[in-house]
């Protein structure tokens, strides 16, 4: 299932829908699993009346985690060596997200092949919510 250096070239892409109509319950699930219980993500009364946002919003790490699913589906399990993102816009309940990886570079270092990817996740309005990069080990 691993990617092969001789079958990859700069500009290749892989795209997946991460979630259709994100629920508050999934955000609660993420709070429980991750241990990040910030009420901004699960508590509308606090978030709207005290923090001044229109509703709760997803943990950035939930979007990064969902985007990671697209990456591991593409490069294979246990193949990532680097994965980093910037959180560029908030993700709200009801959002539908699509993530895309684009091949930037295929290279060899000490006999091991790697692919460098740029990563971008957008919402239903085309706004980028997560933008970053990743590197994975690939086969020759």
């Amino acid at each position: 299932m691993a990617l092969h250096a001789n079958q990859l070239k700069a500009g290749d892409t892989h795209e997946e829908q991460l979630v259709d109509n994100l629920t508050r319950t999934q955000i609660v699930q993420y709070a429980g699993a991750s241990g990040d219980y910030n009420p901004l993500h699960t508590d509308d009364a606090y978030t709207m009346k005290i923090a001044g946002y229109p509703s709760v919003f997803a943990h950035g790490m939930l979007t990064m985690g969902m985007t990671g699913k697209m990456l591991t589906n593409y490069v294979g399990d246990g193949r990532l060596v680097k994965y980093g993102v910037r959180f560029t816009s908030q993700v709200w309940p009801g959002d539908t997200l699509v993530a895309k990886a684009t091949v930037e570079n295929v290279r060899e270092e000490d006999g091991q092949h790697f692919v460098d990817l740029t990563v971008s996740t957008t919402n239903q309005d085309g706004t980028v919510v997560v933008s970053g990069s990743a590197t994975a080990r690939i086969d020759p």
């Binding site: 299932m1 691993a2 699993a33 991750s34 241990g35 990040d36 790490m61 990064m64 985690g65 990671g68 699913k69 990456l71 591991t72 294979g76 399990d77 246990g78 990532l80 994965y83």
Partner: peptide
Amino acid sequence: TEPGGIIAPPTFPRACAQF
């Protein structure tokens, strides 16, 4: 599978917050 056993998803390390 290639890893030969259960592994954690890529962003799991942040769940260290629990501990």
